[in-house]
């Protein structure tokens, strides 16, 4: 993955997002996607930027009406489970710096 387009010192971070295959197919992308996120770089602003860049993902990660994470989508970054942290919490520095991706993971569930 390429280095960050901008450093966080510019006020815009290039955040790498890794998604499950189902969402990559919907967004018609392969591999990770990089989204530009204006500070502050949080879960909310990153997912806002992701949905703005790929509108077909709107509603598939967060409920359209409540903004809540869909129950069976997990959010990980830099070895941490961010699924249940408040959405305005800043993302870990390695994610903001582009060294680690924000990982969207479908929860394990049979069927």
């Amino acid at each position: 993955m390429s280095a960050a387009l901008h450093g966080p010192e510019d006020g815009v971070a290039a955040v790498r997002v890794a998604m499950p295959q189902q969402l990559r197919t919907l967004a018609r992308i392969s591999g990770e996607v990089v989204v530009e996120v204006a500070a502050p770089v949080t879960l909310r602003t990153t997912l806002d930027a992701l949905e703005a860049a790929h509108p077909t993902l709107t509603g598939t990660i967060r409920d359209r009406h409540t903004g809540q994470r869909r129950a069976m989508v997990r959010l990980y970054a830099d070895g941490e489970d961010l699924s249940n942290v408040p959405p305005d919490t800043p993302l870990p520095e390695p994610v903001v710096a582009g060294r680690e991706p924000l990982r969207l993971v479908g929860a394990i569930a049979g069927g």
Binding site: L26, T56, G59, T60, R70, M72, V73, G111
Partner: peptide
């Protein structure tokens, strides 16, 4: 739809050869 990612709607204008969300 599915339990993970909710509802998506698809449309085809060519009898199912290609689809648009």
């Amino acid at each position: 739809s599915d339990g993970w990612f909710g509802q998506v709607l698809q449309r085809s204008d060519d009898g199912g050869a290609t689809w648009e969300t």
